[in-house]
Design a protein around this nucleic acid. Sequence first.
DNA 1: GACATATCGGATAAATGATTCTGATTAATA
DNA 2: TATTAATCAGAATCATTTATCCGATATGTC
Lengths: 145, 145
Amino acid sequence: MSIIFSKKCEYGLQAVLYLSSTTTQPVVSAEEIAKTLYIPKEFVSKILQELTTSGIVASKKGKNGGFTLNKALSEIRLIDIVAAIDGFDIFNKCVMGFPNCSSESPCPVHGRWSVLSKETYTMLSEETLEDFLAKTKHKIQSIQK
Amino acid sequence: MSIIFSKKCEYGLQAVLYLSSTTTQPVVSAEEIAKTLYIPKEFVSKILQELTTSGIVASKKGKNGGFTLNKALSEIRLIDIVAAIDGFDIFNKCVMGFPNCSSESPCPVHGRWSVLSKETYTMLSEETLEDFLAKTKHKIQSIQK
DNA sequence: GACATATCGGATAAATGATTCTGATTAATA
DNA sequence: TATTAATCAGAATCATTTATCCGATATGTC
């Protein structure tokens, strides 16, 4: 089971991160991404299709086709991928599942969770792929099994 | 869809919280809990069965039976319910889903997420039901639809 | 133009999680 | 003892998510 993102979203984040580390290639095939990330090929290409629709990724059909990022690295944040796939629900809902939990009628952890939720949002929106790449080349291989 | 807890866990937390606010009654029937929390009766009684197994809740069969807390309010923390139902996975897994993410080979948000994850754990383990009750009587009704 | 190799897009299948059903057991009460 | 009201336990159903399949289309190369 996944933590706060759906599996689809996790895979989407991983795939985009991988694309950001392969900018020397014009496009990368779904197969290569799938093999590197140990994600089913059909699934990852479906996810990248969706991200193509939302403008984050571009695709090229036919022989030597594949996927590539559709924006500059400095213009892509993790939150953009999350928003495109899972939406913003996790930042708005009550962590205990109470339908009417709010600052007026808070659940026991409403205040504290609001802070953590906001910090999570910040974590995903403050830095761009460019920042990540500057700090450290993503060693995707080493965080895969 | 739920945020970090399964629906089962959310309902479990809500039910235990409700039980903490009804300590005048010897036991509370699954039906009463279900009606108050707008949870299917069969489902909530199934969940409370599980919490009975793990010792947090006690059940009384037969006529006028129902559920009640099996420990003092000062000895029940939210993390105990989470541990019993969802386990500790959410505190250990990589938020981006990388199988080998660790402090040695971190994903781009590993460090920041570790902090948030730890704070979430603290939020759930620092206070007991007694503390919640002391601060404010749980107005379950007002946070329900 | 023929062929090989990609994505695209819709349909379907498999797996997981959430919910309901049913029958059994238990216990209080009249 | 009969009745009633509750949990218990496991099976069955339903819904959602995850994963796969396949035919169509596009494109580079010979």
